[in-house]
Design a protein around this nucleic acid. Structure first.
Lengths: 204, 204
DNA sequence: CGCTAGCTTGAGGTCTATCAACTGAGGTGG
DNA sequence: CCACCTCAGTTGATAGACCTCAAGCTAGCG
């Protein structure tokens, strides 16, 4: 990663846009990035949220087919894809690594597809919170305290719901004592088992 | 592909199952394969339909995370993944090719996600038929005649709808003169423009 | 000829979107 | 320092799309 450079992106600023030439790949160092797809009629599908340590812009050959927008002040490291090609040809193992990274991305997109397609609003929201919690745990942070780095709109477009439904579901979870919410963005998991049960759906 | 072997799979028989070791990759030569994911409570998400010429089993490192079931008598060519690894290490370019293949798969999964998440039942079904039509056209076959190689249940689980909704939507398309249906599986596109308009949704 | 699997059709109910009003926080300018 | 504005979120009422349950139909097959 000799040719890697640091790039700072403001809140709401785009890292790249749909249709841009895919010139770089990026690694998030600090902050968060929202990856999404836009339809002609204004409907939006959020595909992923990139957290510190995550790569974005991978698996793209010509032009980007998604847009990437920082949800807050974000620091990235960028590597030109031309460089990437050279590095891969020199080092075949890296090609396999990229293949595996991409394969992870594929399976997480499938997981999201499954949620959006088959699960109710409650299940999706509960599952979303648990996924964030697990991410915290993996990073050695507190699994029960979640700081949401994205807006309700982002969550809604990610889960295929409306902001009203997200809001109502959060409120219901709070009323039922499963979670606590402070200042909209700080979520504390109180009854994890109930949350898991809700995420898993009716019979399971 | 020196080590490739032919394999015949009966209708309803599985090529591989969720949890199996990913020992081979396959190329469909004749017939059709349905790739899906199963939830504990019986809900199913069909991820893809593999047509002749398509690869299946790519992008998997340890165990399969999906199941693959033939929808009819199907002929495959199989290559052990051990072989694949060797070939890639010998030939770095192939690694990049796999990377690109996988990247196509990722973008088509995202496309499906977009449909399931943001589009109405009518839009999804119309889009599904048009996609099949385009596939025919690409293969030099008649773009207006579609032979469905899968059941209503498969389509429903693919589009995140119920079989009843699929059936009703087909009936409505037929009544409105957009398509013709013979013996459930033979679909003829009559008014392609109207079908495109329906697939694209309200404003677009 | 009866059976099963897959498909169609109908009636009724529910979940979530839509529309709309309200609240609170944060920023800006007078 | 306060008034004003905007943006994000919450809450309520209503409507509609799709699911669920149920019955009937057709084709293939033993």
């Amino acid at each position: 990663m000799a040719a890697a450079q640091t790039r700072i992106v403001e809140r709401k600023e785009h890292v790249f846009c749909d249709g841009d030439d895919a010139t770089h790949i990026y690694k998030v160092e600090a902050g968060h990035v929202c990856i999404y797809h836009m339809l002609a009629d204004g409907r939006r599908q959020v595909i992923d949220f990139a957290f510190p340590g995550d790569f974005i812009g991978l698996g793209v050959v010509g032009q980007h087919t998604t847009s990437a927008q920082a949800t807050e002040l974000t620091r990235l490291r960028s590597l030109p894809v031309s460089e990437l090609h050279n590095v891969v040809l020199d080092n075949p193992q890296l090609g396999l690594d990229l293949y595996e990274t991409l394969s992870d991305e594929l399976s997480s997109t499938r997981e999201l597809l499954l949620s959006v397609s088959q699960r109710s609003a409650h299940e999706r929201v509960a599952g979303f919170l648990l996924a964030l919690s697990q991410r915290n745990a993996r990073r050695g942070e507190d699994a029960d305290t979640i700081v949401l780095p994205m807006t309700r709109t982002d969550i809604a477009d990610y889960l295929g719901l409306t902001i009203e439904t997200i809001s109502r579901t959060f409120t219901k979870l709070r009323r039922n004592g499963l979670i606590d919410i402070e200042q909209c963005i700080l979520i504390t998991i109180i009854d994890r088992d109930a949350l898991i049960e809700m995420a898993e759906g009716p019979s399971a």
